[in-house]
């Protein structure tokens, strides 16, 4: 048992639990997130993008740039693993 680590983790835990008190209840339809952008996406996705899966619509269109970033992350990781583990070869 590592006391220092435990204390650090407990401290973080206290901070996080403190925040929970002011969070909307589980499944609250009136939470700011659901009320604001969540509703906007649900209302607009079909006519804007024309895809039935709203997650897909956001992923590929509204926030498509995040997805590009995500692809770059995989690319980066792939090259990283190649650099770290490959022996010889041209890469």
């Amino acid at each position: 048992m590592n006391v220092k680590a435990l204390l650090a983790v407990l401290l973080i835990g206290v901070i996080l639990f403190w925040a929970v008190g002011d969070m909307p209840a589980f499944g609250d339809p009136q939470s700011p997130a659901t009320r604001y952008t969540g509703k906007l996406y649900v209302d607009l996705a079909l006519q804007d993008v024309g895809v039935e899966n709203i997650v897909t619509a956001i992923l590929a269109s509204y926030r498509g740039f995040d997805t590009l970033g995500e692809t770059v992350v995989i690319f980066t990781a792939g090259i990283s693993v190649a650099l770290l583990l490959r022996r010889g070869g041209r890469l």
């Binding site: 901070i15 996080l16 403190w18 925040a19 008190g21 002011d22 969070m23 909307p24 939470s31 700011p32 997130a33 659901t34 009320r35 604001y36 952008t37 969540g38």
Partner: peptide
């Protein structure tokens, strides 16, 4: 936590919406 408190991810939008929630522990966290 910011998203929970405001429902947006855009920085300018956050700055606009946050003042209403300044008292929340969520925002402090």
């Amino acid at each position: 936590n910011l998203y929970v408190a405001t429902g947006t991810l855009n920085m300018a939008d956050l700055a606009r919406l946050l003042p209403a929630s300044y008292g929340l522990a969520t925002v402090h966290t």
